[in-house]
């Protein structure tokens, strides 16, 4: 591993950003070090995109300071080591794939060879296609390719795989890991826990404009490990016997299936068996991030209740 350099890739110090009456970021302090692969996790509207727009110099903070490699990100020269993704829908539709890559790469002093980059992202056959004719997945790959064409030391990927199928997602994840291996700092935002699990080493959880948690991946997973336990009850009236199962956050029924959202699925299953509840078709699944947050807060209040 490369030693961390004296200057971090980016720092935020006491950063607050408001839009009229809305506070998008609330007193955030964060350091993004070179060599880190950081997952930024939070529901829509949590403040992730605002944070990235401050680091990439699109906006200025209302309070606090943002530094990019020690300089002001609003100054174009300081963005020379920064790579970001355009929104998938925002590519100039009449330009060809190769032209867009050359255009973006031309802004950097030592861009990657276009051919090499295209191969890395499986875009070689599409080089002379206009971007307007690409599929969503192909555009997404191009967008991520554009983020690294200039060999940046800080890469910001805003929801890089939203809406992609599994294969396309793997290609992108491999490319992101591969680029990170060269020692750059890569930040991936997502509202999918799965994506963060697959990629990140360090996880920053943001909600309501605040950093809720900032830790390595296993520590965060332990805190947001909510699961859905789904089953079909033989006797529908049994649903009342499920309400006081351990760490139950939510209980719902749909199409004859009962779903228990819990922070401790193992305990729930053990208890179901112990109580001799007649069920079939047991299924345990990871919960969505929003549900995980719900579980996280629920458990915290439960802990407080227990200590009282």
């Amino acid at each position: 591993m490369r030693p961390t350099t004296a200057t971090p890739a980016a720092t935020l110090e006491g950063v607050t950003r408001t839009f009229d009456a809305v506070t998008a970021l609330d007193d955030v302090t964060l350091t993004l070090e070179e060599g880190q692969l950081i997952g930024m996790l939070g529901p829509n509207g949590a403040g992730k995109s605002t944070l990235l727009s401050l680091v990439s110099g699109l906006r200025r903070p209302s309070r606090g300071t943002v530094r990019l490699f020690g300089g002001d990100p609003r100054d174009a020269a300081n963005r020379i080591l920064l790579g970001t993704t355009p929104q998938e829908t925002g590519l100039p539709s009449t330009l060809k794939v190769r032209e867009v890559v050359d255009f973006v790469g031309g802004h950097y002093p030592a861009p990657m060879a276009t051919g090499e980059l295209m191969e890395m992202f499986g875009l070689t056959d599409l080089a002379s296609r206009q971007t307007g004719g690409l599929s969503g997945g192909q555009r997404r790959r191009l967008a991520v390719a554009l983020a690294i064409v200039g060999r940046p030391r800080l890469v910001l990927l805003d929801e890089p795989t939203t809406g992609l199928d599994v294969d396309a997602r793997r290609i992108l994840w491999d490319a992101v890991r591969g680029y990170h291996a060269s020692g750059a700092c890569v930040v991936v935002t997502s509202h999918y826990l799965e994506e963060i699990e697959a990629l990140a080493e360090r996880v920053v959880v943001i909600d309501g404009g605040r950093v809720l948690a900032d830790d390595d991946l296993p520590a965060i997973l332990a805190r947001v490990g909510a699961r859905h336990v789904r089953l079909t009850l033989e006797h529908p009236a049994d649903v009342d016997r499920l309400r006081d199962l351990p760490s139950v956050v939510d209980l719902s029924q749909q199409d004859g299936r009962t779903s228990v959202l819990t922070a401790d699925s193992d305990a729930v299953v053990r208890e179901l068996v112990r109580r001799d509840v007649a069920f079939s078709g047991l299924e345990v699944r990871g919960a969505s991030l929003e549900e995980a947050f719900l579980a996280m807060t629920e458990r915290e209040s439960a802990t407080q209740g227990a200590t009282r």
């Binding site: 020690g70 300089g71 080591l81 002093p109």
Partner: peptide
């Protein structure tokens, strides 16, 4: 040799 440029903004010459 795989490692990309590690110049700081002060050192990297803009286009």
């Amino acid at each position: 040799a795989r490692s990309p440029r590690t110049a700081t903004p002060a050192g990297a010459r803009p286009v």
